[in-house]
Design a binder for these strands. Sequence first.
DNA 1: ATCAATGTAGAGCACTGCTCTCGTTCTGGT
DNA 2: ACCAGAACGAGAGCAGTGCTCTACATTGAT
Lengths: 218, 218
Amino acid sequence: MWHTGAVVSRAEARERTTARILEAARVQIAESGASALSTRAVAREVGLVSSALFRYFPTRDALLTALIAESYRRLGDTLDAVPRHRSPARRWTATALALRAWAREHPHEFQLIYGTPVPGYAAPPDTVPLAAAVARPFLEAGAREPVAGFEKVAAQMSELREVFDVDPAGGAAVLAELAALLGAITLELGGHFVGTADPADELYAALVARQVRTLGLR
Amino acid sequence: MWHTGAVVSRAEARERTTARILEAARVQIAESGASALSTRAVAREVGLVSSALFRYFPTRDALLTALIAESYRRLGDTLDAVPRHRSPARRWTATALALRAWAREHPHEFQLIYGTPVPGYAAPPDTVPLAAAVARPFLEAGAREPVAGFEKVAAQMSELREVFDVDPAGGAAVLAELAALLGAITLELGGHFVGTADPADELYAALVARQVRTLGLR
DNA sequence: ATCAATGTAGAGCACTGCTCTCGTTCTGGT
DNA sequence: ACCAGAACGAGAGCAGTGCTCTACATTGAT
C-alpha cells in the first residue's frame, strides 16, 4: 500500500474497467435486449477503442455469459430476500410473486436467463450452481413432503437430497412447478396471452394457488 | 391457358420465388437458429442478388414474421393430427407428448414461436388465431369441466366459450397447464435441467400425469 | 536499468441489413 | 397495337458489426 489517492494498481484498474464494461453492457441489454448488445457500442460508452474491449472479454459471447451469470445472481438474491413466512404456503406464494415481479421489471435479463439460448451455445457448467440458487427458495418452501407421481423423477435426481435436504419426490414436483411458473411468465412477456388471459395477474394467481394445493402446502 | 410447360405468369413466378425464399430461410433457421438468419445468405441460396430479396420481404423482420407464422401452422397441424382418443385423459397425454416431440425435433422453430421475441417487436395480431390453433387440441381434450380456483380468470376470458365451446374455468386451467408444458420444454431445450432432471422424460411424464389429475380428466 | 507482461490505438477484413439507381421485362388500359 | 407504368433483377454503396493484427506506451518485477 505505497500509493494513495487516485493512483491505483494495475489490477485495480483492470477490475474497475471490467466492472464499467459490465455495467454499460447491462444498461444496453436492459434497453433493447441481448441481440442488440454491441461490443463497439459498449466500448464507446466506456471510452475505449473497439479493439481494447477484447482484452477484457475475448469474445462477445464471453461478455454475454458474464451478464447471464450476473442476472442469475440478481434473481437469486431477489428471491432470497423474500421473507420466510412461517407458513410454507405463504412463502411459496410470496416467492412465486417475487419471481414474476422481477421478470416484469427486468424482462430482458429474464430472457437472458430463460430465453432462447445463443446459437452455438452450450450451457457452461458454472451456471448450474447459479440455477440452483434460483431454485433453492422454491425448494425450501415447497418440497416438504413427497408428492405422489414423482417418485421416478426423484430417483433420477437423488443427489438433490444431499445438497438441499429436501424430500426428493417433493423436490421433483417443485421443479415441475417452477417450470410452470417460468412458462407462464415467458408466455406473458412474449405477449402470448393477448386476447385471452391478458393481463395475466389472475391467471398467475390461480396457478400459484393450484400449486399450493398440489404440493400439499399449508 | 394459352401457355404450357415452363412459361409462367408473373404472379406465379413471384409466388414460387417467395416459396423458395421461405424454404431456404427455414433450412437456415433449422440449422442454426433465428439469430443466424441472413438475408444475404438466403438470397445467395435462392440465386438472387442480395438486394432483390427485399422485393419479396421488405425487411429481415418481415421474413422472420412469415417464418413464425409458418412454424405456428406446422405445430398446430402436428397437434391436430394427434388421434382423438375416446378418453380425454389419453388424448391430453398424447397431445402433450406430441408437443414435446415436435419441440425436440424442431427446437429452433419452437424457439421462434415461444423463445425470446425480437427486439423492437410487438406481437402481430394475425398470430393470435395461430396461437389459438395450437391451444385448441388442448382445450378440446382438457376443458371438460370447470376447475376450482380459475373462476376469476374465466370471467376475464369469457369470449373463449363463444369460440371454442368449452367450459371457461376449465379453459383457463388448461391455459395454465399449457404454459406449464411450454415452460418445461423451454427449460429442457435450454439445458436448464442438466444436473437435475436430465433427460427430462420422467419429469415430463410425471408433469402430464399430474395435469390429468388436476384437470379432472378420465 | 532491463525486460516481459499488460494495455491502448488504429487500420483492416469479412460480413451484415438495407438503400438507391440503373436497365430490362412484363402487364393492363386504351 | 401501342405505350405508360409497374414489377423485377443487378450492382454499387453506406453504415454498422465482431474480431484480428500490428505498432506503440506504460507498468511491475527482477
